[in-house]
Design a protein around this nucleic acid. Structure first.
Length: 570
DNA sequence: GCCGTTTTCGGCCCGACTGTTTTCAGTCG
């Protein structure tokens, strides 16, 4: 039983209780529980089997713990089944429609017989909604539009895509003379791997001028809200963009508010309450008196906390750590000394060894490992033993020719279906950096996949396990593997785990990176560059590492080459 | 339903915008 599934059960319960008009705090407990479960790096099923104390997880009390046990042990949940009997199965989905919450869903169900999105659409078209309580023609229009948008399924966008859109919109708004500052906040500022929408904070004297320009943005398909300080658009690709205008005096509290996450903010506000304070986007208040708000630092200090980096603001223990003075000193891009995963024209890369090396030197790196594919990766023209031997010679030559950069001889060798290596040990031992990776046979059962990878990294010449879960963000699910087991072996064998920096991979992800660190693993951040331009993707790997609470010491390619070689040797 | 360095009971974050109707409930982030 996957954690995700358990989280879904809790969300479903919350939705149903919501529509039934239950106690909102009880509903929130289920939503909080769902989030805790989904964020959890280790498998709950395992925890249940080991008899672990589930109530130690934040937001999980006796009741939810018991339900988790029931789901793990029986695959079902009686409580949820009972709830489902009371309402039509299609009803909770209505909550996914923009502008429809539990109250309207219930109203439509009771007064217009709506029990699914299809029947909602029909009711709106037939004009059966506008005679209901506080509903007019406009409501019906909005619902029909929102259904269309939902069916288009905009969903989430990759972080790099988010940066591109944020850039275009800030460029577009810049000509407004009164504009002082424009900062993309929200999940983009927290560097989440995907963003659901774009939140932009504007510091501007005349809010209406800015708002009026914003809603005329050419790619806007829909104006969702147009107020004096806050407006929202939906772009043609479905991405929602919110702009909030504030004054310079509120900059800190506004940025805090608009960066989120929502649950981080709720936790901060709860803490404030306990201190007799109130937090909103305009500042921090004791009674009517405003005691902070100009900078984020000031806001955190007023709550007895040091400034917390945006990447940590997920309510995953950062507030408690901050209160104890135990925040990590997060790794920074400038601390990276080299890249240990790069391809060349020898296989599917676009540049030569020398071009890659020069580009790495230009970035200020001390080293780069050239790690082309092995023969199993046919589409990339992977190298066999002989071809690799020749390739290694070429790498040596470039290394001799260039000064100021060490070019390391490497390979990205495939872990075959049975866990053996795609190349023999004789050639692997000639390499200074051996990266092992899975590129085929993703569909193995979890046990087999785990065994396969463990067998792969148990080869004494393997130094790094690349993109350990194989996922492609928004495209391909991770393969089924027990990462805890793999990490345990990696720690024992001295194999380094990769954070692949490509914005489509970010693999390990933030949560697993943190788990790996806590289990004592060493990590490396690599770009997997297939062209010199891609060496610059390193920053995405840094974002993920920071979200995983990693420090310089956790990441081996922050070291000079000599120490690095010592760290990867087995 | 969860939680507690005041609390095992009594709280539970906070404000903007919309559509509708004259004062606000619902939704959203």
């Amino acid at each position: 039983m996957e954690n995700k599934k358990i989280a879904q059960y809790f969300t479903e319960i919350a939705d149903l209780l919501d529509i039934m008009g239950e106690n909102p705090f009880r509903i929130r407990s289920y939503r909080n529980g769902a989030r805790t479960v989904e964020d959890l790096p280790e498998n709950l099923a395992g925890l249940v089997r080991e008899g672990g104390d589930l109530t130690r997880l934040p937001g999980i009390g006796e009741s939810l713990a018991e339900k988790i046990r029931e789901i793990v042990e029986t695959g079902k949940l009686k409580f949820l089944d009972e709830l489902k009997k009371k309402l039509p199965v299609g009803l909770p989905e209505l909550l996914r429609i923009e502008g429809i919450g539990p109250k309207k869903a219930k109203l439509f169900y009771e007064k217009a017989g709506v029990d699914s999105i299809q029947s909602l659409e029909k009711a709106a078209k037939d004009g059966r909604l506008h005679n209901l309580f506080r509903m007019g023609d406009k409501t019906e229009d909005n619902i029909l539009r929102a259904i269309k948008n939902y069916q288009k399924g905009a969903g989430r966008f990759r972080l790099d895509v988010g940066f591109t859109y944020a850039g275009s919109i800030t460029e577009y708004l810049k000509p407004v003379k009164e504009l002082k500052d424009l900062i993309p906040a929200g999940s983009l500022r927290r560097r989440r791997e995907t963003i659901g929408d774009l939140d932009i904070l504007a510091i501007c004297k005349s809010s209406s001028i800015l708002m009026n320009r914003f809603v005329k943005y050419e790619d806007a398909e829909d104006i969702l809200a147009h107020g004096t300080t806050k407006s929202s658009l939906r772009l043609s690709n479905g991405l929602q963009v919110d702009v909030r205008v504030m004054g310079a005096q509120q900059f800190g509290s506004a940025l805090l508010y608009f960066t989120g996450s929502k649950s981080h903010n709720i936790a901060l506000r709860t803490r404030a309450q306990e201190m007799g304070l109130k937090v909103n986007e305009y500042g921090i208040f004791r009674g009517k008196k405003r005691i902070a708000g100009k900078t984020e630092e000031e806001c955190y200090h007023s709550l007895g906390l040091p400034w917390i980096p945006p990447e940590l603001r997920e309510n995953r223990g950062e507030i408690e750590a901050a209160a104890k003075g135990k925040l990590p000193r997060l790794i920074e891009l400038g601390e990276i000394r080299g890249d240990l995963h790069a391809h060349t024209r020898a296989t599917d890369g676009k540049n030569s060894i020398e071009e890659m090396a020069r580009a790495a030197r230009k970035l200020g790196y001390a080293y780069i490992a050239i790690t082309d594919h092995s023969k199993a990766v046919k589409v990339a023209g992977g190298l066999d033993e002989q071809a690799l031997a020749k390739h290694l010679k070429k790498i040596e030559k470039v290394n001799e020719k260039l000064s100021g950069i060490r070019v390391l001889k490497g390979v990205e060798v495939d872990i075959l279906g049975d866990g053996t290596m795609d190349l023999n040990d004789d050639i692997l031992k000639e390499c200074e950096v051996v990266i092992a990776a899975v590129h085929y046979h993703f569909n193995l059962p979890e046990k087999e996949m785990t065994k396969r990878i463990i067998r792969g990294i148990s080869n004494r010449y393997v130094n790094i396990l690349a993109h350990p879960t194989g996922r492609l963000i928004l495209e391909r699910e991770p393969y089924r593997v027990n990462l805890e087991e793999v990490i345990k072996v990696a720690v024992n064998e001295g194999v380094v785990l990769e954070i692949n920096a490509h914005p489509a991979r970010l693999d390990l992800n933030d949560i697993h990176s943190r788990m790996a660190k806590e289990m004592g693993a060493k990590l490396v951040i690599n770009t997997d560059a297939h062209a010199i331009s891609q060496l610059g993707l390193m920053r995405y790997g840094i974002f993920t590492a920071r979200r995983g609470w990693l420090e310089k010491e956790d990441v081996i390619n922050t070291n000079p080459v000599k120490k690095l070689m010592g760290l990867i040797s087995r």
